[in-house]
Design a protein around this nucleic acid. Structure first.
Lengths: 141, 141
DNA sequence: CTTGACTCGGTACCCTAGTACAGGGTGTAG
DNA sequence: CTACACCCTGTACTAGGGTACCGAGTCAAG
Protein backbone atom coordinates (compact mmCIF):
# COMPACT_ATOMS: atom_id res chain seq x y z
CA UNK A 1 0.00 0.00 0.00
CA UNK A 2 1.14 3.43 -0.83
CA UNK A 3 -0.61 5.99 1.28
CA UNK A 4 1.18 9.25 1.71
CA UNK A 5 4.35 7.81 0.36
CA UNK A 6 7.33 9.46 -1.28
CA UNK A 7 8.25 9.34 -4.91
CA UNK A 8 10.81 6.62 -4.29
CA UNK A 9 8.28 4.32 -2.67
CA UNK A 10 5.77 4.93 -5.41
CA UNK A 11 8.30 4.29 -8.13
CA UNK A 12 9.40 1.08 -6.47
CA UNK A 13 5.83 -0.09 -5.88
CA UNK A 14 4.95 0.27 -9.54
CA UNK A 15 8.35 -0.66 -10.89
CA UNK A 16 9.48 2.48 -12.61
CA UNK A 17 12.35 4.85 -12.20
CA UNK A 18 11.99 7.94 -10.01
CA UNK A 19 13.01 10.14 -12.91
CA UNK A 20 10.30 8.54 -14.96
CA UNK A 21 7.67 9.59 -12.44
CA UNK A 22 8.91 13.15 -12.58
CA UNK A 23 9.05 12.90 -16.35
CA UNK A 24 5.40 11.87 -16.45
CA UNK A 25 4.57 14.76 -14.20
CA UNK A 26 6.25 17.13 -16.63
CA UNK A 27 4.20 15.62 -19.44
CA UNK A 28 1.10 16.10 -17.29
CA UNK A 29 0.33 12.41 -17.27
CA UNK A 30 0.51 12.67 -13.52
CA UNK A 31 -0.87 15.79 -11.96
CA UNK A 32 1.21 17.91 -9.60
CA UNK A 33 1.15 15.90 -6.41
CA UNK A 34 0.66 17.21 -2.92
CA UNK A 35 3.86 18.30 -1.22
CA UNK A 36 5.25 18.27 2.23
CA UNK A 37 6.40 21.64 3.54
CA UNK A 38 9.89 20.53 2.59
CA UNK A 39 8.84 20.20 -1.01
CA UNK A 40 8.83 16.39 -1.03
CA UNK A 41 6.08 14.99 -3.23
CA UNK A 42 3.53 12.81 -1.47
CA UNK A 43 1.48 10.24 -3.29
CA UNK A 44 -1.56 8.15 -2.47
CA UNK A 45 -3.46 5.30 -3.99
CA UNK A 46 -4.93 7.40 -6.77
CA UNK A 47 -1.55 8.25 -8.14
CA UNK A 48 -0.41 4.68 -7.85
CA UNK A 49 -3.42 3.54 -9.85
CA UNK A 50 -2.80 6.19 -12.43
CA UNK A 51 0.83 5.23 -12.78
CA UNK A 52 -0.07 1.57 -13.16
CA UNK A 53 -2.58 2.56 -15.78
CA UNK A 54 0.12 4.32 -17.73
CA UNK A 55 2.45 1.34 -17.56
CA UNK A 56 -0.22 -1.12 -18.57
CA UNK A 57 -1.55 0.96 -21.41
CA UNK A 58 2.00 1.32 -22.62
CA UNK A 59 2.41 -2.44 -22.59
CA UNK A 60 -0.66 -2.58 -24.81
CA UNK A 61 1.09 -0.43 -27.36
CA UNK A 62 -0.34 2.97 -26.56
CA UNK A 63 2.04 5.89 -26.79
CA UNK A 64 2.26 8.36 -23.94
CA UNK A 65 0.30 10.78 -26.09
CA UNK A 66 -2.50 8.27 -26.54
CA UNK A 67 -2.42 7.44 -22.87
CA UNK A 68 -2.89 11.08 -22.07
CA UNK A 69 -5.99 11.02 -24.25
CA UNK A 70 -7.33 7.95 -22.48
CA UNK A 71 -6.75 9.60 -19.15
CA UNK A 72 -8.48 12.72 -20.31
CA UNK A 73 -11.46 10.75 -21.49
CA UNK A 74 -11.78 9.60 -17.97
CA UNK A 75 -12.19 13.01 -16.53
CA UNK A 76 -14.43 14.26 -19.28
CA UNK A 77 -18.00 13.87 -18.15
CA UNK A 78 -19.35 13.64 -21.67
CA UNK A 79 -17.07 10.81 -22.69
CA UNK A 80 -18.66 7.43 -23.14
CA UNK A 81 -17.33 4.00 -22.73
CA UNK A 82 -17.63 3.59 -26.48
CA UNK A 83 -14.93 6.18 -27.02
CA UNK A 84 -12.48 4.03 -25.16
CA UNK A 85 -13.76 0.98 -26.93
CA UNK A 86 -13.05 2.53 -30.30
CA UNK A 87 -9.49 3.30 -29.34
CA UNK A 88 -8.96 -0.23 -28.11
CA UNK A 89 -10.46 -1.59 -31.31
CA UNK A 90 -8.06 0.48 -33.34
CA UNK A 91 -5.15 -1.05 -31.47
CA UNK A 92 -6.63 -4.49 -31.90
CA UNK A 93 -6.96 -4.12 -35.65
CA UNK A 94 -3.42 -2.88 -35.74
CA UNK A 95 -2.21 -5.91 -33.80
CA UNK A 96 -4.07 -8.28 -36.07
CA UNK A 97 -2.61 -6.77 -39.20
CA UNK A 98 0.84 -7.10 -37.76
CA UNK A 99 0.28 -10.72 -36.92
CA UNK A 100 -0.75 -11.49 -40.46
CA UNK A 101 2.33 -9.87 -41.87
CA UNK A 102 4.51 -11.66 -39.37
CA UNK A 103 2.88 -14.89 -40.38
CA UNK A 104 3.99 -14.23 -43.94
CA UNK A 105 7.47 -13.36 -42.84
CA UNK A 106 7.69 -16.52 -40.74
CA UNK A 107 6.59 -18.60 -43.72
CA UNK A 108 9.27 -16.99 -45.82
CA UNK A 109 11.91 -17.64 -43.20
CA UNK A 110 10.90 -21.29 -42.84
CA UNK A 111 11.08 -21.58 -46.56
CA UNK A 112 14.53 -20.09 -46.60
CA UNK A 113 15.69 -22.41 -43.88
CA UNK A 114 14.31 -25.40 -45.71
CA UNK A 115 15.95 -24.37 -48.97
CA UNK A 116 19.16 -23.85 -47.11
CA UNK A 117 19.07 -27.26 -45.54
CA UNK A 118 18.54 -28.81 -48.91
CA UNK A 119 21.77 -27.18 -49.95
CA UNK A 120 20.11 -25.18 -52.66
CA UNK A 121 21.20 -21.69 -53.57
CA UNK A 122 19.11 -18.94 -52.04
CA UNK A 123 18.99 -16.73 -55.06
CA UNK A 124 15.23 -16.67 -55.12
CA UNK A 125 14.44 -16.52 -51.47
CA UNK A 126 10.98 -15.53 -50.46
CA UNK A 127 11.73 -13.12 -47.68
CA UNK A 128 11.58 -10.03 -49.76
CA UNK A 129 8.69 -11.26 -51.81
CA UNK A 130 6.31 -11.33 -48.92
CA UNK A 131 7.20 -7.99 -47.48
CA UNK A 132 7.91 -5.92 -50.50
CA UNK A 133 4.25 -5.54 -51.33
CA UNK A 134 2.69 -2.13 -51.23
CA UNK A 135 1.40 -2.04 -47.68
CA UNK A 136 1.44 -4.12 -44.60
CA UNK A 137 -1.08 -1.73 -43.17
CA UNK A 138 -0.21 -1.58 -39.55
CA UNK A 139 0.01 1.26 -37.09
CA UNK A 140 -2.28 4.21 -36.72
CA UNK A 141 -4.28 5.04 -33.64
CA UNK B 1 7.23 1.92 -62.08
CA UNK B 2 10.57 3.18 -61.07
CA UNK B 3 13.21 2.25 -63.56
CA UNK B 4 16.28 4.42 -63.60
CA UNK B 5 14.60 7.02 -61.49
CA UNK B 6 16.00 9.66 -59.20
CA UNK B 7 15.93 9.65 -55.45
CA UNK B 8 12.93 11.96 -55.40
CA UNK B 9 10.84 9.67 -57.55
CA UNK B 10 11.81 6.64 -55.53
CA UNK B 11 11.00 8.36 -52.28
CA UNK B 12 7.64 9.48 -53.59
CA UNK B 13 6.81 6.05 -54.99
CA UNK B 14 7.38 4.37 -51.67
CA UNK B 15 6.14 7.20 -49.54
CA UNK B 16 9.23 8.19 -47.64
CA UNK B 17 11.27 11.32 -47.39
CA UNK B 18 14.31 11.84 -49.60
CA UNK B 19 16.48 12.35 -46.56
CA UNK B 20 15.27 9.05 -45.25
CA UNK B 21 16.52 7.27 -48.34
CA UNK B 22 19.92 8.84 -47.90
CA UNK B 23 19.78 8.01 -44.22
CA UNK B 24 19.16 4.34 -45.03
CA UNK B 25 22.03 4.42 -47.45
CA UNK B 26 24.28 5.73 -44.68
CA UNK B 27 23.11 2.89 -42.48
CA UNK B 28 23.84 0.50 -45.33
CA UNK B 29 20.26 -0.69 -45.53
CA UNK B 30 20.34 0.44 -49.11
CA UNK B 31 23.54 -0.18 -50.98
CA UNK B 32 25.34 2.62 -52.75
CA UNK B 33 23.21 3.12 -55.82
CA UNK B 34 24.43 3.63 -59.31
CA UNK B 35 25.17 7.24 -60.19
CA UNK B 36 24.92 9.43 -63.17
CA UNK B 37 28.11 11.21 -64.15
CA UNK B 38 26.72 14.21 -62.36
CA UNK B 39 26.57 12.28 -59.13
CA UNK B 40 22.79 11.88 -59.09
CA UNK B 41 21.72 8.55 -57.65
CA UNK B 42 19.75 6.29 -59.95
CA UNK B 43 17.43 3.61 -58.68
CA UNK B 44 15.60 0.66 -60.19
CA UNK B 45 12.99 -1.82 -59.14
CA UNK B 46 15.31 -3.71 -56.85
CA UNK B 47 15.89 -0.70 -54.70
CA UNK B 48 12.21 0.10 -54.63
CA UNK B 49 11.45 -3.40 -53.43
CA UNK B 50 14.15 -3.18 -50.84
CA UNK B 51 12.85 0.12 -49.59
CA UNK B 52 9.32 -1.22 -49.35
CA UNK B 53 10.64 -4.18 -47.45
CA UNK B 54 12.30 -1.90 -44.97
CA UNK B 55 9.15 0.10 -44.41
CA UNK B 56 6.99 -2.95 -43.98
CA UNK B 57 9.39 -4.75 -41.69
CA UNK B 58 9.53 -1.61 -39.64
CA UNK B 59 5.78 -1.56 -39.32
CA UNK B 60 6.13 -5.04 -37.89
CA UNK B 61 8.29 -3.74 -35.12
CA UNK B 62 11.73 -4.68 -36.38
CA UNK B 63 14.44 -2.18 -35.72
CA UNK B 64 16.58 -0.96 -38.59
CA UNK B 65 19.38 -3.08 -37.18
CA UNK B 66 17.25 -6.20 -37.36
CA UNK B 67 16.06 -5.31 -40.81
CA UNK B 68 19.65 -5.06 -41.94
CA UNK B 69 20.18 -8.57 -40.68
CA UNK B 70 17.10 -9.82 -42.48
CA UNK B 71 18.28 -8.22 -45.68
CA UNK B 72 21.73 -9.66 -45.32
CA UNK B 73 20.29 -13.13 -45.09
CA UNK B 74 19.50 -13.16 -48.72
CA UNK B 75 22.68 -11.61 -49.97
CA UNK B 76 24.96 -14.04 -48.26
CA UNK B 77 26.20 -16.55 -50.76
CA UNK B 78 25.70 -20.24 -50.32
CA UNK B 79 29.30 -20.34 -49.12
CA UNK B 80 28.22 -20.33 -45.50
CA UNK B 81 24.76 -21.67 -45.83
CA UNK B 82 24.72 -23.02 -42.31
CA UNK B 83 25.42 -19.54 -41.13
CA UNK B 84 22.50 -18.13 -43.04
CA UNK B 85 20.36 -20.92 -41.74
CA UNK B 86 21.21 -20.15 -38.15
CA UNK B 87 20.50 -16.49 -38.62
CA UNK B 88 17.23 -17.23 -40.34
CA UNK B 89 16.29 -19.46 -37.45
CA UNK B 90 17.07 -16.66 -35.05
CA UNK B 91 14.86 -14.29 -36.98
CA UNK B 92 12.15 -16.88 -37.17
CA UNK B 93 12.17 -17.26 -33.42
CA UNK B 94 12.10 -13.50 -33.18
CA UNK B 95 9.08 -13.31 -35.47
CA UNK B 96 7.35 -16.03 -33.51
CA UNK B 97 8.01 -14.24 -30.25
CA UNK B 98 6.56 -11.07 -31.71
CA UNK B 99 3.49 -12.98 -32.79
CA UNK B 100 3.05 -14.41 -29.34
CA UNK B 101 3.34 -11.00 -27.77
CA UNK B 102 0.82 -9.62 -30.23
CA UNK B 103 -1.44 -12.57 -29.56
CA UNK B 104 -1.38 -11.76 -25.86
CA UNK B 105 -1.95 -8.12 -26.60
CA UNK B 106 -4.90 -8.90 -28.85
CA UNK B 107 -6.39 -11.20 -26.24
CA UNK B 108 -6.07 -8.52 -23.61
CA UNK B 109 -7.65 -5.95 -25.88
CA UNK B 110 -10.49 -8.26 -26.90
CA UNK B 111 -11.18 -8.99 -23.29
CA UNK B 112 -11.34 -5.36 -22.48
CA UNK B 113 -13.53 -4.59 -25.45
CA UNK B 114 -15.89 -7.38 -24.54
CA UNK B 115 -16.46 -6.07 -21.07
CA UNK B 116 -17.17 -2.63 -22.38
CA UNK B 117 -20.78 -1.59 -22.67
CA UNK B 118 -20.57 1.16 -25.16
CA UNK B 119 -23.23 3.54 -23.91
CA UNK B 120 -22.10 3.65 -20.33
CA UNK B 121 -20.70 6.81 -18.88
CA UNK B 122 -17.00 6.72 -18.56
CA UNK B 123 -16.91 5.97 -14.85
CA UNK B 124 -18.18 2.51 -15.59
CA UNK B 125 -15.72 1.69 -18.31
CA UNK B 126 -14.19 -1.66 -17.55
CA UNK B 127 -11.29 -1.04 -19.85
CA UNK B 128 -10.09 1.84 -17.80
CA UNK B 129 -10.64 -0.04 -14.56
CA UNK B 130 -8.68 -2.96 -15.83
CA UNK B 131 -5.74 -0.88 -16.79
CA UNK B 132 -5.33 0.11 -13.16
CA UNK B 133 -4.72 -3.43 -12.03
CA UNK B 134 -1.39 -4.90 -11.14
CA UNK B 135 -0.56 -6.49 -14.46
CA UNK B 136 -2.09 -6.51 -17.88
CA UNK B 137 0.50 -8.92 -19.17
CA UNK B 138 1.32 -8.36 -22.79
CA UNK B 139 4.30 -7.19 -24.82
CA UNK B 140 7.94 -7.93 -25.22
CA UNK B 141 9.51 -9.13 -28.41
C1' DC C 1 20.30 30.71 -72.18
C1' DT C 2 17.53 31.23 -68.41
C1' DT C 3 14.75 29.69 -64.75
C1' DG C 4 12.75 26.71 -61.48
C1' DA C 5 12.77 22.19 -59.81
C1' DC C 6 15.74 18.84 -58.42
C1' DT C 7 20.09 16.81 -56.39
C1' DC C 8 24.54 16.76 -53.92
C1' DG C 9 27.11 16.32 -49.29
C1' DG C 10 27.44 17.88 -44.69
C1' DT C 11 25.89 19.49 -40.47
C1' DA C 12 22.46 20.54 -37.28
C1' DC C 13 18.27 19.76 -35.39
C1' DC C 14 13.55 17.25 -34.02
C1' DC C 15 10.79 13.81 -31.39
C1' DT C 16 9.94 9.88 -28.05
C1' DA C 17 10.80 7.88 -23.91
C1' DG C 18 13.53 7.99 -20.79
C1' DT C 19 18.15 8.24 -17.74
C1' DA C 20 22.07 10.51 -15.48
C1' DC C 21 24.30 13.84 -12.92
C1' DA C 22 25.24 18.04 -10.26
C1' DG C 23 24.64 20.79 -6.31
C1' DG C 24 21.89 21.40 -2.69
C1' DG C 25 18.16 20.43 1.03
C1' DT C 26 15.60 16.81 4.24
C1' DG C 27 14.70 12.83 7.39
C1' DT C 28 15.97 9.69 10.61
C1' DA C 29 18.65 6.01 13.11
C1' DG C 30 22.21 5.61 16.12
C1' DC D 1 25.07 15.61 16.14
C1' DT D 2 26.45 13.00 12.48
C1' DA D 3 25.87 9.84 8.78
C1' DC D 4 23.59 8.29 5.15
C1' DA D 5 19.67 7.56 2.44
C1' DC D 6 16.49 10.09 0.29
C1' DC D 7 14.45 14.13 -2.10
C1' DC D 8 14.59 18.70 -4.68
C1' DT D 9 15.37 21.39 -9.35
C1' DG D 10 17.66 21.86 -13.42
C1' DT D 11 20.24 20.54 -17.18
C1' DA D 12 22.40 17.31 -20.15
C1' DC D 13 22.64 13.09 -22.28
C1' DT D 14 21.20 8.47 -24.70
C1' DA D 15 19.31 5.67 -28.48
C1' DG D 16 16.52 5.17 -32.30
C1' DG D 17 14.62 7.13 -36.27
C1' DG D 18 14.37 10.45 -38.83
C1' DT D 19 14.06 15.99 -40.81
C1' DA D 20 15.69 20.48 -42.03
C1' DC D 21 18.70 23.60 -43.89
C1' DC D 22 22.81 25.17 -46.41
C1' DG D 23 25.49 26.48 -50.42
C1' DA D 24 26.52 24.63 -54.65
C1' DG D 25 25.88 21.84 -58.85
C1' DT D 26 22.45 19.69 -62.47
C1' DC D 27 18.46 19.01 -65.48
C1' DA D 28 15.10 20.16 -68.75
C1' DA D 29 11.15 23.02 -70.51
C1' DG D 30 10.43 27.18 -72.75
Amino acid sequence: MTVGCTIGKLAKAVGVNIQTVRYYERLRLLGPSARRPSGYRIYGEDEERRLRFIKNAQALGFTLQEIAELLNLRVSTRARCGDVQRKAEGKLRCAEAKMQALQALARALRNLIRTCRAGQPIEHCQILHHLEKEQVSAEQA
